[in-house]
Amino acid sequence: MCGYLKFILFFSILIPIKLFSQDIIQNQYSYALKLYNSEQYYDAITEFKRLLFFDREKEYVYDANEYIGMSYKIGGKFSEAILYFTIAEMNTDNNEELFNSKIEIVRANILRRTISHAVALLDTLQKDKKFTVNSGNICYWKGWAYIFDDRWDEAAHEFSKIDSCRTLMEFCKNVEQEKYSVSFADIISHFFPGAGQIYASHYFSGFLSLGWNVLWGYLTINSFVNNRIFDGLVIGDLLWLRFYNGNLENAVKYVKEKNLWITNRALDYLQFDYQGIKP
């Protein structure tokens, strides 16, 4: 009888205290989540940090760190985001949470342009048998990683493995086809100075380059023909070769500029008009 009374006494005191303190923590979580949902990310981070600081039971350690990471990511602080996603990853309870955290780390790495990290992480996930069911998801983010690394053909290849990503695959293929070939511009400029610039639609620069090369080439050859070898060497070295090299460098530079414009336009489309999930 005495033990029974002690039992009642003990629980009538402890349970309400415990429930009440957990109520405070739960309210704090709801409050922080409300801030996050209303896009007040700075305040959301503060309140999630406060929650983490006082949550002695570590009940919200995964969620809070995940939300802090998301808030930092939205604020463009990718390194901080990765830090908190990593803490969340270390506190996961199941494979789904683990996979989500890892994917969030990958997405932040893509945005931070540390693509090699993102791809390495995705490769690890791909090899892990736990995540075989998520292979489509892994390919999807690999595709995005390649997009941000300007490897559109490889991105198209990754998207081709997912049935629902046909549009994205076609889009990447089109971008790749639209891009100019740097090596082609370089090669044609070797044989026909100015051709690389003309290929990149810089007609004036192309013809000007051609003109200079013809002039200095003629004078170099003319010097050799007139048996003025030293004249020929100096004109050839100081003038013709310089303009010839300039023509090669310009061709490559213009093609790269053109490709950058095409890539940026594609990324612009993906950022503002593409409806699917983005990094």
């Binding site: 009374l5 009642i8 006494l9 009538s12 005191i13 309400p16 205290i17 009440f20 303190s21 405070i24 704090q28 406060r50 006082f54």
Partner: peptide
């Protein structure tokens, strides 16, 4: 006796409660 225990625990609980309310985050 049971009644006394309940009163006793509710007093303690209310004190603890107050402390927790004051001791919120």
């Amino acid at each position: 006796l049971f009644f006394i225990i309940l009163i006793f625990s509710s007093i303690i609980f209310s004190q603890e409660n107050n402390q927790l309310v004051n001791d919120n985050l």
